[in-house]
């Protein structure tokens, strides 16, 4: 049995993990639907009255402006996936690359520099750093993404560095070097693929962290600038809940909770599946 199918076998037995996978799948389908223009397109029209209750026309009612809360919360799925995917993919790739470099050239100046940058970034409190980067880049469409990617890569790079240092001394690498393959070919073809299990888990953790951070940043006015997101909906709702209107709050927080829950369950199951010691008994 190959490693991949062994992992799939383990995952399939994990009921929690499968539930998580199903939830994430449903949300992904929603996001793709919004992308293709099937639903959520009326998120910005203000056709309704102020704070209308749930009705066949407005499933989750309307907000202060008379916008359809259901459409807004659905459109936000796309926003969440956009942010989550971009940040997860870029930060994990960056972490993999830098981690591999540091591990391959360990105890040289390359390793030293990367460790130094990582040490510096890790010494600054996370939310402070992210908010400061988003503030410094305000007005630029990618401010929030850059802010998150700049911090999220460090954990991945630490794990990958350790793994690469282990792999480096294995036989198949030594023989690849012996036949004179260039370093980067060995790194890309033979080393990095062996860290895939770390990357998958880290990407799913980064995805969750990105969505949670987006919510906080948008709430502070430093996140999503054009469009709608759960963070913006929650920011709106802080004023509405005091006047007794909970639809915006409930829609955004329930959707957010479900997606994060699904991802956390999946990430947990992935970790168990990849690491046989964790589920030894």
């Amino acid at each position: 049995m190959s490693a991949g199918s062994r992992i799939w076998e383990r995952l399939r037995k994990d009921r929690t993990g499968l539930t998580g996978l199903a939830i994430v799948g449903i949300f992904l389908a929603l996001a793709i639907g919004v992308w293709l223009g099937f639903f959520g397109q009326g998120w910005s029209a203000a056709d309704g009255g102020r704070w209308e209750p749930m009705s066949p026309e407005f499933w989750f009612g309307t907000n202060l402006l008379g916008q359809d809360i259901f459409q807004r919360s659905i459109f936000s799925v796309r926003t969440a996936f956009e942010i989550g995917l971009i940040v997860a993919v870029v930060s994990t790739s960056l972490g993999a690359l830098l981690g591999a470099l540091a591990g391959w050239y360990s105890h040289t100046w390359v390793d030293g520099t990367i460790l130094w940058v990582k040490g510096v970034l890790d010494s600054i409190p996370f939310y402070l750093f992210v908010a400061a980067v988003a503030y410094a880049l305000q007005g630029k469409p990618w401010a929030m993404h850059v802010a998150m990617i700049a911090t999220f890569w460090t954990t991945t790079s630490r794990l990958v560095r350790g793994e690469v240092m282990k792999i480096k001394s294995r036989e198949f690498i030594l023989s690849a070097r012996a036949i004179g393959l260039p370093d980067f070919v060995i790194l890309l073809r033979h080393v990095l693929p062996n860290t895939l299990h770390i990357l998958l888990v880290q990407a799913s953790i980064a995805f969750v962290a990105a969505i949670k951070t987006e919510v906080i940043l948008s709430f502070l006015g430093l996140g999503v600038q054009d469009g709608v997101s759960w963070g913006l909906m929650l920011a709106e709702s802080t004023q509405e809940v005091l006047a007794g209107h909970f639809n915006n709050f409930l829609a955004a927080s329930v959707m957010l909770f479900m997606l994060l829950m699904g991802f956390n369950m999946l990430a947990d199951a992935l970790q168990d599946a990849f690491d046989p010691r964790r589920s030894a008994e």
Binding site: V215, I216, L234, S253, F257, L260, M261, N264
Partner: peptide
């Protein structure tokens, strides 16, 4: 707990 945003 991990899935709930601080904000909420």
């Amino acid at each position: 707990g991990m899935s709930i945003s601080f904000l909420i």
